[in-house]
Write a protein that binds this DNA or RNA. Structure first.
Length: 554
RNA sequence: GACCCCAUCGUCUAGUCAGGUCAGGACGCCAGGUUUUCAUCCUGGAAACAGGGGUUCGAAUCCCCUUGGGGUCGCCA
């Protein structure tokens, strides 16, 4: 039996690093077939931070990626299981029992120092430039004093008495042997003053109680592992196999963090010396000042998005949800994530889930950290889109629009949307691209403007005859087209080009493109005109002619 | 600062464990070409074993040091 678990704390969306840990856990379990089980456990032992189910957004993210679990919170067809409950907040009795056996055996003891005292001691150690370690003062308390303090209800924690007579050796499936010398570890807290277990204690008790055989997690936990191993020995548990996967970084080498969005916004705000919050953010001056002054403070997601929009700042994608909204395909994100820190050992880079599950193994996980390369992800996404049948592309684009861009479905007939989808199929790197670049399709005719830019000027003003001249001349032939379709438009414009542009289609295509879209970029011109419809095309050309850029009011 | 981890093209990596092909692939980049715009597409190209010592007939590969990067050091997880 092989049992893995993904154990996030309920603090919101799934981060790409967490997603990859979950993915590796899942692939390991699925690769074992009927003998493999994937568990999901919610680590909500921080009463201050986890409130209710506020932060369970990652369940949706996991489902989107196609990662399911055999045991854990019920969601969709996942969940259930015999070793629950799977919320640590519902397992307090178990922790209490195990805690008691640990103290009874003399492996743990009560300590009464206040957080303030400990903070002061750490500060003093830092000032004196000596490494801080808890001094075990509470170990010398006589039983009578302890009892007296307990009777008066003095707050206390329980610390684990770390054996300091032998080195701790962890055998990691990725990193090999990691040794920590005796005396390096302090007597860490295993029960907080509020009676709840700390992470270290709960994780060890639960992994054992749930029969977890393989622990796959981020390398930020490597330094914690000796503590867990010691706890397992004291409790008489077997050790699971550990596999610590390296961290994922931003292209600039910094750690990919949930706070990166706020970081990008803050620097944009500073750069432009913006004093007060733009109204669209919906936050007051006080919140604004707090946010600007404290790196640890995050703006609510909606405010952040509004601010980014107002400032024209592109927020970095760091959560799985960001990639979903960005129009990446879940199977591609999964493929890319799998490749970030693992490889099948040959030149194969693009593969499906079945291939990944079949070939995945702990022994081929890369030790060194990886930078997240959005360009490569995008290239993979493009390849996947190009490999789709036109019908599949249409359906997926429609499904994306339903959730993220309903305006397009409202503004177009199913037939128009089908042409729109097909016209964008070979030029889209994401499901989002057609909507971003095709915004002009759903704007009212009077909202199209012609900003004075180099490509626009070139299309409209340059040449003899100029684009404006050609546009004026092409209106009548276009008006005469009887059945508006890609084909009829094409014959009309081709004929016009033969007669007026020396047969050079580009001479009329680009002015038309600029006239109807306001810019130099659109899908192939005949498709563009077809989707827009005759009325809009004629109206936009006329407006374009009536508002020449040289004299356009600014 | 202490402890721990890591180190091949700009990036992700194969090759390392069982030393022996001009160090392979992909993304990106550059140069051409196709194309009614953007994008796509096609062809070609530049591009790496962090540095220094060992061991060896032979080192990207084994050992040591240096340098660089990262993680941890909470009554957070």
């Amino acid at each position: 039996m092989l049992r893995t678990r993904f154990a996030p704390s309920p603090t919101g969306d799934l981060h790409v690093g967490g997603a990859r840990s979950a993915l590796f856990c899942w692939a390991l379990a699925r690769g074992a077939g009927a003998d493999g089980r994937m568990l999901l456990r919610i680590e909500d032992t921080d009463q201050k931070r986890s409130s209710a189910a506020a932060g369970l957004g990652f369940l949706e993210d996991l489902a989107w990626l196609g990662i399911d679990w055999d045991e854990g919170p019920e969601s969709g067809s996942s969940g259930g299981g015999e070793t629950g409950p799977y919320f640590q907040s519902e397992r307090l009795d178990l922790y209490a029992t195990c805690m008691q056996s640990l103290t009874d055996a003399g492996h743990a003891y009560l300590a009464f120092e206040t957080p303030e005292e400990l903070t002061a001691a750490r500060a003093a150690a830092r000032a004196a430039k000596v490494p801080y370690k808890y001094d075990r003062a509470a170990l010398d308390l006589d039983p009578a004093t302890v009892q007296a303090w307990l009777d008066e209800g003095r707050p206390h924690v329980i610390r684990f008495k770390v054996p300091d007579d032998a080195p701790v050796v962890v055998h990691d499936a990725v990193l090999g042997e990691v040794t920590v010398e005796p005396g390096e570890l302090e007597d860490f807290v295993i029960r907080k003053a509020d009676g709840w277990p700390t992470y270290h204690f709960a994780v060890v008790v639960d992994d054992h109680a749930m029969g977890v055989t393989h622990v796959v997690r981020g390398q930020e936990h490597l330094a914690n592992t000796p503590k867990h191993v010691l706890l397992q020995e004291a409790l008489g548990y077997e050790r699971p196999v550990y596999a610590h996967v390296s961290l994922i970084f931003n292209p600039d080498g910094s750690k990919m963090s949930k706070r990166d969005k706020d970081k990008a916004l803050r620097s944009a705000v500073r750069e432009r010396s913006i004093e007060s919050p733009p109204a669209v953010c919906g936050i007051d001056d006080g919140q604004w000042a707090t946010w600007l002054g404290d790196k640890a403070v995050q703006l609510p997601a909606e405010s952040a998005a509004a601010l980014a929009n107002a400032l024209q700042v592109e927020l970095p994608e760091i959560n799985v949800a960001d990639f979903r909204e960005g129009g990446y395909l879940p199977e591609v994100v999964l493929n890319y994530l799998a490749l970030l820190g693992w490889s099948p050992g040959n030149d194969i880079e693009q593969f499906d889930t079945a291939f990944f599950i079949e070939h995945f193994g702990l022994d081929r996980i890369v030790k060194s950290p990886a930078k997240f390369d959005r360009a490569k992800l995008k290239a993979f996404n493009l390849d996947a889109i190009q490999a789709m049948s036109p019908g599949t592309w249409l359906e997926r684009l429609r499904a994306f629009a339903q959730v993220h861009e309903p305006t397009f479905l409202d503004a177009m007939t199913p037939e128009q949307f089908a042409v729109f989808a097909e016209a964008n199929r070979e030029r889209s790197k994401t499901l989002r691209d057609p909507f971003d670049s095709g915004r002009f399709f759903v704007l009212p005719d009077h909202a199209i403007t012609w900003a004075d830019s180099k490509p626009v000027r070139k299309a409209l003003c340059k040449g003899e005859p100029s684009g404006y001249d050609l546009l004026a001349a092409v209106i009548e032939p276009l008006r005469a087209v009887e059945t508006w379709s890609t084909g009829s438009i094409e014959s009309c414009v081709e004929a016009f080009a033969q007669a007026n542009c020396d047969g050079n289609l580009g001479k009329i295509a680009q002015p038309l493109r600029v006239a109807v879209s306001g810019g130099p970029v659109s899908p192939p011109i005949f498709d563009t005109l077809d989707i827009l419809g005759s009325d809009a095309v004629l109206a936009r050309i006329e407006r374009c002619l009536a508002n020449p850029i040289a004299s356009a009011p600014t």
